[in-house]
């Protein structure tokens, strides 16, 4: 027994009332919800509304609103927040790994770098690099916004974008000493670490953009 288009729309409306908008999660919850209803209607010989109520109770806990420091401006159902956290954790772990690697290499060759070459240009390279990166990410941000669809990846992109945008401007070594990578001919390890982290972290924007496009492409090809 398959549900009608109207019944599917009723479920979708309910999910949106529960603030479940991100498409990659919404489609699978909707399908699971509908499967559960169809099964109850078939096995227990009950109507749509009674079967809907059974599913609603099953999912109640997963639709509770989750709030955290990271997602303060978003009201998220628990099921979505859990997915965001997993994706964000992966981004952070990967970024820290590559940051560690870059910093380790720089520290390893620090003395030889300082003696064999003039490192005074490093702050300028990093400073202008921030701007080039910023333009690149801003283009991606424009493109991802233009798709007009909400996915886990797009929302994470938006959250991370605000942070990186501020970082690129405020902590730019061109005008702020705090995180300079060079001072008086010496390479500063903590500055290298911070800059390497921002650059490595920024790679995630490309990955998030690609994942978002992949979801949208799959949905467009099979849109309802």
């Amino acid at each position: 027994m398959s549900l009608t288009k109207e019944q599917i729309q009723d479920i979708e409306l309910y999910l949106e009332q529960k603030k479940l908008f991100v498409l990659d999660v919404k489609i699978e919850v909707l399908d699971h919800f509908a499967n559960g209803i169809e099964q109850s209607m078939k096995v227990e010989k009950i109507g749509f509304l009674d079967a809907f109520e059974i599913e609603r109770i099953k999912w109640e806990n997963d639709f509770n609103i989750y709030t955290s420091f990271l997602f303060t401006h978003n009201e998220l159902p628990k099921i979505v927040a859990k997915k965001w956290k997993k994706e964000e954790k992966k981004i952070l772990v990967n970024s820290l790994f590559f940051t560690g690697l870059v910093t380790f290499l720089v520290v390893l060759f620090k003395t030889s770098l300082e003696t064999k070459m003039d490192v005074s240009f490093l702050n300028k390279i990093i400073g202008y690099g921030y701007f080039i990166y910023l333009v690149f990410i801003a283009i991606l941000n424009f493109k991802i916004t233009n798709t007009g669809k909400s996915t886990t990846y797009r929302n994470l992109f938006k959250i991370n974008f605000s942070g990186v945008f501020i970082w690129f401007f405020v902590f730019n070594p061109l005008w702020l000493n705090t995180f300079q990578v060079e001072s008086n001919g010496n390479v500063l390890s903590y500055g290298v670490f911070m800059s390497a982290f921002v650059f490595c972290f920024s790679f995630s924007f490309l990955i998030l953009y690609k994942k978002h496009k992949h979801v949208i492409k799959s949905l467009t090809a099979r849109s309802l």
Binding site: S2, L3, K5, I8, I27, D31, L219, R222, L224
Partner: peptide, 10 residues
């Protein structure tokens, strides 16, 4: 993702 019974399936 595939379309099955009036809805999308992941």
């Amino acid at each position: 993702i595939a379309k099955v019974d009036n809805r999308l399936r992941k």
